[in-house]
Amino acid sequence: MLVAGAIGKCIGCRLCSFYAGLLSQNLAGLNCSCVRIDYHADVDSFTLAIDPGSSLGKKDFEKIVKLCPRQCLEIAS
């Protein structure tokens, strides 16, 4: 599973999950089950997780990370 972890600057705009939803649905729809956001109240941040079964590749992930206006994502694995 590819995971992008928030590193403390996240303000919860959820652009990353929206964008990942767009990309992983082959630009056909949103709310796909293969993208998930987990909220960590203890550190007030989000983790974006993409199911390995999704069509997203490394390039897509780099796009998502680049899109984050707060630059708070990184590719964790």
Binding site: L15, Y19, L22, L23, Q25, L27, A28, G29, L30, N31, C32, L67, P69
Partner: peptide, 24 residues
């Protein structure tokens, strides 16, 4: 919000989002 919502032109939507983010 658990419906699957179709998007007419996702590619165009991605470009618009990037453009708008540049206008903050």
């Amino acid at each position: 919000g658990d419906a699957c919502v179709p998007v007419s032109d996702g590619e165009e939507l991605c470009l618009i989002i990037e453009d708008l983010l540049g206008k903050t």
